[in-house]
């Protein structure tokens, strides 16, 4: 499952160029999490994996994710399906005896994978996030029918047919809006977003 990548150094403990880059951006994000530095204290006990309700569906478990990170194999983590199966229920985080912020570290890994575009085409979680983000940016609000529509158009449009009965049931209960709700301050909202995008790229200088 874990293949040796070309740019990974074969000398133990020596990081390849790409791995070093990934490691730096990941560490930067982990340090932004309150309590993020406790990742250093992981004792590989496996409480996270044992507490996770979906670890049985993962190709690598939460405990292995931290082990791989330490071993300089971030690229293997990013190309796993495990990080995307996490539904962010925080069961691992509250049970970790060392206070490792596992769920928030998985969020950081998801963002890194998206940033590096390391995932298959028509990848479900990315398609959903992308649809969600585009609707929120546009209207300032999320819009459920639009989200489902965009998502299935990006992944598997045929499945939309199967959703029609549920859509109708919810519609007749008044639980589906035909038009998206929008915020009033859309113009200033997009100005905020543009500035936020610039801020996203600002990385503070690290003390060494």
């Amino acid at each position: 499952m874990i293949e040796k990548r070309e740019n990974t150094s074969i000398i133990p403990g020596v990081l390849g160029k790409k791995e070093k880059h990934l490691r730096d951006s990941l560490l930067q994000q982990i340090l932004n999490i309150p309590g993020g530095e406790s990742i250093k204290k992981c004792i590989q006990c496996g409480c996270c994996t044992g507490s996770c309700p979906v670890s049985y569906m993962m190709d690598i478990t939460p405990r292995e994710i931290i082990a791989l990170f330490r071993a300089g194999e971030i690229e293997s983590i990013l190309s796993s399906r495990a990080i995307w199966i996490c539904a962010s229920c925080y069961a691992c985080t509250i049970r970790c005896p060392q206070g490792v912020q596992v769920t928030d570290i998985l969020y950081a890994l998801k963002r890194l994978a998206i940033d590096q575009k390391i995932f298959p085409k028509r990848f479900p979680v990315y398609a959903l996030s992308e649809s969600f983000v585009s609707l929120t940016n546009r209207f300032g609000r999320s819009y459920e029918p639009g989200l489902i529509l965009l998502y299935f158009l990006k992944t598997n449009p045929l499945k939309l047919l199967g959703l029609v009965p549920l859509f109708l049931k919810l519609f007749f209960k008044g639980r589906i809006g035909l038009l998206p709700k929008k915020i009033k301050g859309r113009e200033t909202f997009s100005r905020i977003l543009r500035e936020a995008e610039i801020m996203e790229m600002v990385v503070p200088v690290q003390e060494s």
Binding site: A87, G140, I192, L193, A196, E197, M199, V202
Partner: peptide, 22 residues
Amino acid sequence: EDWNCCGATSYMSTKETISLVI
């Protein structure tokens, strides 16, 4: 008044700073 979407888990999985901003 004029609240916007919190960003939910989906936004949090894509961009860190932007999701915090919204």
